[in-house]
Design a binder for these strands. Structure first.
Length: 489
RNA sequence: GGCGCCGUACCCAAGUGGUAAGGGAGCAGUCUGCAAAACUGCGAUGCAGCGGUUCGAACCCGCUCGGCGCCUCCA
């Protein structure tokens, strides 16, 4: 039974879908005016994993994730660069797909854009005005928070408290300082659409209400996003959605914690952020490996807690994965005709599966899920020591693959253990290393055979020289008890 | 000023009232010509501090200290 922490109730609760075996969920995506940083990656990954786990549990998931493509920051960026807003948004939507693709984030079922839902937004705004929950001033339309008694329920704030600390300049035209814009009149040169209140553009919050209701219905199961969206974004979404429909909006509100750098929130305003593409560009490892490292790192802490990003934490993720892929290499080898202990492996794999599900069902406790894999790794290594048949090896590898798929881990056929040639370029340039030359698999096998001969002749000097030669090409050797060797890059 | 979060071994990190998971690093072994990998053993009488509730608390309550987030765009 999956339980999730619901921000709305402040408690962890059993998840029950509105319709059996079907989940409808909406996640606030990004505003496309710049490249995504690791914080965006974490959020995208958390909901990607939630979606995968729901599907693993047999649910059909209708997953909607939006792009905010009309916004002050986009307009500003377009003006700075002297291009259209559309140029900006399409560039960063492409970048988003590219970056998230490298991380193995699956696409949502639908990924709507705000600008494609202006009609729905206007309709909803009219509905709110018609119900007396919103009012027009000049070309702007505001939602009147005092007309919505439950305002503050999600963020646990009272209207009075908000006023006290309001840092915003008070707009005299608003009836209450906390009233927020549903529709903004547009200034010359800004994107604009005709509306009953004159040419303008949507406010920020209304787009998510309009799009989620259009694609998922007035009441749906899960609504998610980063912690910082709780207030005001999600609070406002609830007010305007429930206000308009008179129905419950989303049942479970899920929010992920921040990625930090040196214990501080990573954000654009602080300038301490790392973009996803920057990490890939600087990585010493291949794209696939870097993607999996990042995933492992991002899942090493439960999604609601803070997560500190550093080179060391990435390195630890890499080391952990090395251990798994080392095992997978061994599992890929043919098992000798060893005494059958098949039941022991099967039993152990089934236990691990149950433990994995228990961890994931506990509010997506991915650190515990990773610990389950670690323990399984250790146990399979032990069983391997007493000999496993080819079939048992395949079963074990398959268990890692199928369970790991929920987290997007352990899917690679080839893992890169050492730093790549590309990654060492700078060291070579700095004269710290001599250039390394790519070496073919055939050549490696040939050298290993030569080394084996040398070992047979007990010419360890030559054997070690060959090993050193291979090492200089980034190849590591492991000798097996039967005299043969396995190697890895 | 309001709302809220966090503080567990050298590092990362679980723990949701019943006596401290897991990983990394370190040390010591087994195996090995050596190496690598793997395996075995060692590692917090204590969970920021102080009180309280309880038969029993890292977990509940109160206070203190330290760090952080939201209240303005923000994953």
């Amino acid at each position: 039974m999956l339980t999730l922490f619901n921000t709305l109730t402040g408690k962890q609760e059993p998840f029950e879908s509105i319709e059996p075996k079907q989940v409808r969920m909406y996640v606030c995506g990004v505003t496309v005016y710049d490249y995504c940083h690791i914080g965006h990656a974490r959020s995208a990954l958390v909901f990607d994993v939630l979606r995968r786990y729901l599907e693993y549990g047999g649910y059909r998931v209708e997953f909607v994730k939006n792009f905010t493509d009309v916004d002050d920051k986009i307009i500003k960026r377009a003006n700075e660069q002297g291009v259209s807003c559309e140029t900006i948004t399409s560039r960063f939507i492409d970048a988003y797909y590219e970056d998230m693709g490298k991380l193995g984030i699956e696409r949502a079922t639908k990924e709507p854009k705000a600008t494609e839902h202006i009609g729905e937004i206007i309709q909803m705004t009219e509905r709110l005005v018609g119900k007396g929950l919103a009012y027009a001033v000049g070309g702007d339309v505001y939602f009147q928070v005092e007309k919505y008694p439950a305002y503050g329920r999600l963020s646990k704030r009272k209207l009075e408290d908000l006023q006290a600390g309001a840092r915003v300049d008070i707009d005299e035209r608003k009836r209450h300082p906390m009233d927020f814009a549903l529709w903004k009149s547009s200034k010359p040169g800004e994107p604009s659409w005709p509306s009953p209140w004159g040419p303008g553009r949507p406010g920020w919050h209304i787009e998510c209400s309009a799009m989620s209701i259009k694609h998922l219905g007035e009441t749906f199961d899960i609504h998610g996003g980063g912690m910082d969206l709780i207030f005001p974004h999600h609070e406002n979404e609830i007010a305007q959605s429930c206000g308009a429909t008179g129905k419950e909006f989303a049942r479970y509100w899920i929010h992920n914690g921040f990625v930090q750098v040196n214990q501080e929130k990573m954000s654009k305003s602080l300038g301490n952020f790392f973009t996803i593409r920057e990490i890939f560009e600087k990585s010493k490892w291949s794209e696939a490996v870097t993607g999996e490292m990042l995933r492992y790192f991002l899942l090493s802490t439960q999604y609601r807690g803070p997560l500190d990003f550093s080179d060391q934490s990435l390195k630890e993720a890499k080391n952990a994965l090395n251990g798994f892929y080392d095992l997978f290499n061994r599992l890929a080898e043919t098992g000798e005709g060893v005494p059958k202990v098949e039941q022991a492996v099967r039993t152990r794999l089934d236990e691990a599966q149950r433990a994995f599900e228990a961890a994931m069902s506990n509010d997506l406790n991915t650190p515990v899920a990773l610990a389950v894999f670690q323990t399984l790794r250790s146990d399979v290594n032990k069983l391997l020591g007493s000999g496993l048949s080819t079939q048992e090896r395949q079963q074990a590898r398959e268990a890692f693959r199928s369970l790991g798929a929920v987290l997007g881990l352990f899917q690679l056929e080839r893992w890169q253990f050492g730093e790549s040639l590309k990654g060492l370029e700078s060291a070579v340039k700095a004269g710290q290393l001599t250039p390394m030359v790519e070496i073919s698999d055939e050549r490696i096998e040939q050298m290993i055979t030569e080394r084996r001969e040398a070992k047979k002749q007990r010419d360890f000097k030559l054997a070690d020289a060959i090993r050193a030669e291979l090492a200089s090409h980034g190849i590591t050797i492991e000798d097996k008890p039967d005299g043969t060797s396995r190697w890895k890059r």
